[in-house]
Design a protein around this nucleic acid. Structure first.
Lengths: 233, 233
DNA sequence: ATTTTAAATGTACATCTTACACTTAAAAAA
DNA sequence: TTTTTTAAGTGTAAGATGTACATTTAAAAT
């Protein structure tokens, strides 16, 4: 490039913070990789990679997520860019973190998961390379804020879910107990869930009604000034 | 660098979205630059520049802001990173936007302002180069959300300010009218303002009491689980 | 028929939000 | 010295929302 020719160029990376919700264990997990190259080969790391010439940052994040999990069309959102001089001892690398949410039952069905990828409970994470722990802490705290104000939680649930399951998801992300009646009252009063005739019968004799998220209804309400708000006691 | 040697490097820039509040005109303004080099020389642009080898992204943003306005120790926050392939026709440039807030009465006192820098009201901005309008829209919308939940508004007011001035600031940022009694009730009930004995006498015969923000008090309350919340009717 | 298990439900009280109009202080003008 | 003018300052009632809390219901298993 002849323009801007006096300026230094740098490696640009993306790192993916992939949160997976395990509906069975009722736990939020994080996708970690055993690093296969130097520096810090063998340490725990986020799923990351360098941005290629023909792709945008968003494209790079999608590609890396797809390569590692086989999943596409996942809620994937830019989090924050880390540009400290010495953050990577191998070279000056500017890295943009992306945050993804996955329902773990989906990924278990997928074959093409990188064999060096592991799901680890967010309670009790190992040390991560470079500034990756920082990235995770920021992303988790952003997720907690976001899930209050946008219906991103539905990305972590199967299409049909019970209110108990939804409540367990929120409890796992906030890491606290939630009052059942108030939670139900609040989410049902928004009018964005559809009650199905079918019941989930695995966890109880009585069975719990399935619901599904009515996205069209939500979008219509949002246009009319409605705010999703699921702050929790 | 010998590690990571197969990957392409890119130019990395920061662009500063500098909002200035004009307490006289009661208007939020944006700092724009007439671009002095190709491509798009002569067009309106944000204050930007390339990241140098010895500085972090944050450092680069501070340096650029200082160079253009002479101001230091300004509230300066990373906003978002723009990495589309063709966003800059001159070269592949990854740019991280930063957002700064300034009280315009402060900057008027400063001498070292770049002569190609201009303050323009956010109502009625000109077209900006590349994706800079996008950057501004996102930053403004983030500012509106942030100022609800954190006391960043005080960065835009002089140390001593009247409640009317504070209300005008919020009205300028939200671009809407605010009920005087409710606004006062809400902000005063937080217990983070100190009423001074002194009055501002320029705008009224009666005079309006000055207040100041008690930052220590705010931080203590915040530690105890208090949330600043200045949602506006 | 009885027991067991988890799902489903309602209410009272406190807190917060919202809409709304008159009084007060002080300078300027008459 | 009175009157006028201007912007600052103040309160309340009604409605909406948040919170704490315990019993009943459905259905399978014994």
């Amino acid at each position: 490039m002849e323009l801007y020719s006096n300026y230094t160029q740098y490696l640009v990376a993306v790192d993916c913070i992939v949160f997976g919700y395990d509906i069975i264990e009722k736990e939020l997990k994080l996708l970690l990789i055993k690093r296969s190259f130097e520096p810090m080969k063998g340490s725990w790391s986020l799923a990351g990679g360098f941005v290629e010439e023909m792709e945008s940052l968003d494209d790079a994040a999608s590609r890396i997520l797809r390569t590692l999990t086989g999943l596409e069309r996942i809620y994937l959102k830019q989090s924050f860019t880390y540009g400290e001089k010495e953050r990577d001892p191998g070279a000056r690398v500017i890295s943009t973190a992306y945050c993804a949410l996955i329902a773990l039952r989906d990924i278990n069905k997928e074959p093409a998961v990188n064999s060096e990828a592991h799901w680890r409970s967010i309670a009790g994470l190992p040390d991560l390379i470079f500034d990756h722990s920082l990235m995770v802490n920021k992303a988790l705290s952003d997720l907690q804020n976001q899930i209050k104000a946008k219906p991103v939680g539905f990305e972590l649930l199967p299409e049909k879910f019970t209110l108990v399951q939804m409540q367990e998801l929120y409890a796992a992300i906030y890491q606290k107990q939630i009052d059942k009646r108030n939670f139900r009252k609040k989410i049902l009063s928004m009018g964005i869930l559809e009650k199905l005739d079918e019941k989930e019968r695995e966890t109880s004799k009585k069975g719990a009604y399935y619901y599904k998220f009515n996205k069209e209804r939500y979008e219509k309400l949002e246009q009319n000034g409605f705010y999703f708000n699921l702050d929790v006691s």
